[in-house]
Amino acid sequence: MSVRLRTSLFRQRGMSYWGWLLVVAMFGFILTCVSKMAPAYIDARYVEEGLKKLAENPNLRELSRADIKKELDRFFLINNVRGEPTKSVKVIRGADSMLVSIDYELRQPLIYNVDVVMKFDKQLNTAKPELCCEPLVDLEQFRKRDN
C-alpha cells in the first residue's frame, strides 16, 4: 500500500469517540433545556391567546374586575394554564380605558444549582386592542404607588 493511500484512508475514519461523546452531550443539554423551559413558553402563548379572546368581547368595558378575572380563569382552566400566570392577573381602570396585565416571572431549576429565570409581560389596553399583548404601559409606577 502506498503512503498516499494510507494517509487518505486515515483521514476518512470519521468522528472519534470523543467527538461523538461531545455531540451526544450537547444534544442532551439542548433536550434538557427544551424540556424544562417549553411548558412555560406554551403557557405564555395561552396567556396571550386568552387576552386576545378577551379583547374580542364587545362588553369588556362594562365587566367588573372579578368578571374579567373569571373569564380569564375559565380560559386558563380549559387550556390547563396553572401557577403564576393565573395568580398575576391585574386589572387597572383608567378614565377612558382599561389595562389588563399579566406580568410574572418563573424560576425553573435546570441542572443541579443552576436556575433559568423567564420573565413574561403581557398586556391588553382597551384603548388599543389591536396592539394586544405587547407591554405598552410601565407598571413600575403602579407598584411603587401601591407599596
Rank of each mutant, 00 (worst) to 15 (best):
M1D: 07
M1H: 09
S2M: 02
T7N: 12
T7C: 08
T7Q: 09
S8W: 03
L9C: 04
R11I: 07
R13G: 10
G14A: 03
G14E: 04
G14P: 06
Y17L: 07
W18H: 09
W20K: 05
L21D: 06
L21E: 04
L22K: 05
V23H: 05
V24N: 07
A25Y: 06
M26T: 14
G28M: 07
G28L: 05
I30Q: 05
I30D: 02
I30F: 03
L31P: 01
V34I: 05
V34C: 08
S35V: 06
M37S: 08
M37I: 11
A38L: 10
A38V: 06
A38G: 11
A38F: 04
P39C: 02
Y41Q: 07
D43H: 02
R45S: 09
R45L: 05
Y46I: 05
E48G: 12
E48A: 15
G50W: 07
G50D: 08
L51E: 04
K52A: 11
K52F: 15
L54K: 09
L54H: 09
A55F: 09
E56F: 13
N57M: 11
P58W: 03
P58F: 07
N59L: 10
N59S: 07
R61P: 05
R61W: 08
L63T: 08
L63N: 06
L63C: 13
S64Q: 10
R65T: 15
A66W: 06
A66S: 12
D67Y: 05
I68V: 10
K69Q: 13
K70W: 10
E71M: 02
L72G: 01
L72T: 01
L72E: 01
D73K: 09
F75N: 01
F75K: 01
F75G: 00
F76L: 02
N79H: 02
V81C: 01
G83W: 00
G83F: 00
E84D: 11
E84H: 03
K87A: 14
S88E: 14
S88Q: 15
K90E: 15
K90S: 11
V91W: 01
I92E: 06
A95W: 04
S97M: 10
S97I: 07
M98D: 08
L99T: 13
L99C: 04
S101T: 11
S101Q: 13
D103S: 14
Y104T: 15
E105N: 14
E105S: 11
E105M: 12
E105T: 13
L106G: 03
L106C: 11
R107Q: 14
R107V: 12
Q108Y: 02
Q108R: 11
L110R: 00
L110N: 00
I111M: 02
I111F: 01
N113D: 12
N113K: 03
N113A: 07
N113T: 02
V114S: 01
V114I: 13
D115R: 04
V117Q: 01
K119I: 09
K119M: 03
K119N: 10
F120A: 06
N125G: 10
T126P: 13
K128L: 10
K128F: 07
E130I: 13
E134I: 14
P135Q: 11
P135K: 13
P135Y: 13
L136R: 10
L136Y: 12
V137W: 10
D138Y: 14
L139Y: 15
L139E: 14
L139Q: 09
E140H: 14
E140A: 14
Q141K: 14
Q141A: 15
F142M: 13
R145E: 14
R145P: 11
